[in-house]
């Protein structure tokens, strides 16, 4: 530290803690609310401490869903979310790593064209072409299916670019050495490229899992069957604008359940998460 200024250091701590309180408060309050009974919530009388029904709301949310507006139980919705997130993460990583491998390690006719074809999609989210894409999925008969939920979101350039960038840093000597050892391209891929890419794959997996779990517009659009709802969409369905009909105690419990997996991933895989975040956005 260049200066010794106890006051400025104290101020820094105060600002940081103020920031942390702002960041934590909504979630804390949701957690609190999810343990109170519906009547107290409805009357706005829950205070800032845990309520008396720590498990009932969760049981209801997990196995029954909201009552006043009929919704799917959270267990089902979480499974849907999990399936969607995993398919997107695994699918993206799989097709990206092989396409990046093709672009980097092979000299084939149309390579640059292929690269740019993928590259152009970099920043165009599904939201901008939502209805035509919906129509394609509908025509393919994939509405209300896991395939329909995940496959269209697998088309994105980010992961391909990340792998391409990483492959460029693998020294040429490694290819030459394995050629001399008699390895063909697929052998080199499995024995060298994949093991070297492990950290990158893991980092990417963390980011993509969160991305997939948190999808909203797309699943909202292509699932009409309530049993196919993801948990993020499901929460939305539990809220009714004329709020007397909203089961807030269920909503709060469901919200906690919806946040839990991705937040846990971020907190427990902090290093991979930060790496993935920074590298996919280059």
């Amino acid at each position: 530290m260049v200066e010794r200024r106890p006051f400025s250091n104290l101020l820094a701590h105060l600002i940081l803690w103020a920031g942390i309180i702002v960041v934590v408060f909504p979630v804390y309050y949701t957690l609190i609310a999810s343990t109170h009974n519906p009547r107290d919530i409805f009357n706005g009388e829950i205070g800032f401490l845990p309520g008396g029904v720590p498990t009932e709301n969760y049981k209801a949310a997990l196995f029954a869903g909201a009552k006043q507006v009929k919704t799917t139980p959270a267990t089902v919705m979480m499974l849907n979310s999990l399936a969607m997130a995993l398919m997107i993460a695994v699918g993206k990583i799989a097709i990206s790593i092989i396409s990046a491998y093709a672009v980097v390690y092979f000299n084939f006719f149309g390579r640059m064209f292929a690269f740019w074809t993928i590259f152009v999609t970099l920043m165009l989210p599904v939201e901008v072409r939502i209805y035509p894409t919906y129509k394609v999925v509908a025509d393919l008969g994939l509405l209300n299916s896991y395939w329909g939920l995940s496959v269209p979101l697998i088309a994105s350039a980010t992961a391909t670019l990340l792998f391409r960038q990483f492959f460029m840093t693998i020294p040429d000597e490694l290819v030459e050495a394995s050629k001399i050892d008699g390895a063909g391209p697929m052998r080199f891929f499995w024995d060298t490229v994949v093991p070297l890419s492990r950290t990158n794959m893991a980092a990417l997996f963390v980011i993509l899992f969160i991305y997939g779990w948190n999808q909203y517009l797309w699943p909202l659009l292509i699932t009409t069957d309530a049993t196919m709802d993801t948990i993020i969409v499901g929460i939305r369905r539990q809220i009714v604008t004329s709020d007397a009909n909203t089961d807030w105690h269920i909503v709060m419990a469901t919200a906690v359940l919806a946040m839990l997996p991705p937040v846990a991933v971020v907190v427990f895989m902090q290093r991979l998460f930060v790496k993935g975040l920074v590298e996919t956005e280059k």
Binding site: P26, V27, W213, Y216, I235, R236, A255, M259, P262, V266
Partner: peptide, 14 residues
């Protein structure tokens, strides 16, 4: 850093 992991829709609900 963890609010990054909260879905926008859920953030809205909170």
């Amino acid at each position: 850093m963890w609010p990054y992991a909260v879905a926008p829709a859920v953030a809205g609900v909170l």
